[in-house]
Write a protein that binds this DNA or RNA. Structure first.
Lengths: 206, 206
DNA sequence: CGAACGATTGACCCAACTCAAATGCGGTGG
DNA sequence: CCACCGCATTTGAGTTGGGTCAATCGTTCG
């Protein structure tokens, strides 16, 4: 949408598209690559809020609202983005109300997802949280193998820990246990879900 | 806004305006009273996502998106709400783009707030989380006394626990400690922040 | 006055965090 | 091709925050 009003931009791995607290001047749509949205806590720890894969918007609504970015966006895989100035977004929304409605629907879904994650952090124990985080992220960034029975994720233990609100040691121990039970298989910066159904059980069951 | 397109409704304490999983058919604006938005976790525990005070919208964006409510809304103080059918909201957004823009700004702020809460749940320890939750909720539902030096909250330990992702026992212990330090004073379903600045220190500091 | 409910307190215990150290893997440069 | 370095991961041991349970107390209200 809005092709023409914004501009295409190539962003190599490891750069930041924007930093937390920066005035939100630009909204993005990811065409290709991968971007990590993280929030830095006072004290050094950070939380990964989301991992963006192609076809998704980010920093879009804040930009329309004249705020500062509440999170940072780090490119973790060479990416191509399409981006719009905040002012342009506002004009487009005013000109094409349909766009606004779509945006509202989009954000409502993201909102629900965020609430789910909040609940998981508030009520679940580490093993469930890790399962939850894996399933959540696999909806978008996973590469399916063999009719979806397996999902391959490019994800470090560090990332997973920051999504589940724990540390790399606990992540390692949990993954090891699951590996013994053939639920996942792990490698350097790679996690393969061999049995997503079992993970789902863990999340539901308790 | 939109007066005329929706309708006024009186809702007594203890009823639910909507339940989690219900199709989101109506969006609300609170004129008077207090409403608790909570999400029930599989396993009985629940998380209080927000406490709504007069002047705020809720269930509004989900309604515009043809989804099911991701949370339940319980009236916890006799309330007056103004509400719109989902279809009406969509029509209004399409007809008055300005409304859409305002909505997007509104939701972006809420989004940022939710992300903050997520971070707190993921990285902070219980004492900080409770301080955080108190400050967060006091922005909206507190009654200021003596030029803001004190804030009076109608809040049970149970509520606070469900906001901070802990249990009533830990809440009680933390509040007791703070009471000994004259940071708060407590009563039945009532918490008075005597020294919000000190709480803010706790949140920042670590 | 008594029932119901919120709050308190103590004792116990375990999940998970911390720290330290070892191990393995990948890429690089000689 | 091998040696080396840096980083991700693993593993063990020790510690503890805070969750759980049980019992009690206080207060509100019918």
């Amino acid at each position: 949408m809005f092709i023409g009003a914004g501009q295409l931009r190539y962003a190599p791995s490891n750069i930041y598209l924007f930093h937390q607290e920066d005035p939100a001047a630009v909204g993005y749509f990811l065409l290709e690559g991968k971007v990590r949205l993280a929030q830095l806590a006072p004290g050094g720890k950070q939380v990964i809020v989301d991992i963006i894969s192609p076809g998704r918007y980010f920093g879009f609504f804040v930009a329309s609202a004249n705020m500062t970015y509440p999170i940072s966006a780090e490119v973790i895989e060479d990416s191509t983005v399409y981006c719009w100035e905040a002012e342009t977004i506002r004009e487009l929304v005013l000109r094409f109300p349909r766009v606004a409605l779509n945006s509202m629907e989009l954000i409502a879904k993201r909102f629900a997802r965020l609430q789910d994650r909040m609940q998981m952090l508030a009520t679940e124990r580490v093993e469930q949280r890790i399962a939850h985080a894996l399933l959540d992220v696999s909806q978008f960034v996973g590469k399916e193998i063999e009719n979806g029975a397996m999902i391959d994720l490019a994800l470090s233990h560090q990332d997973l820990a920051e999504m589940a609100g724990t540390n790399i040691y606990s992540v390692s121990r949990v993954l090891r246990k699951w590996e013994d039970d053939d639920i996942v298989s792990t490698g350097r910066q790679r996690i393969r879900l061999c049995n997503p159904a079992h993970l789902r059980l863990l999340v539901e069951g308790g």
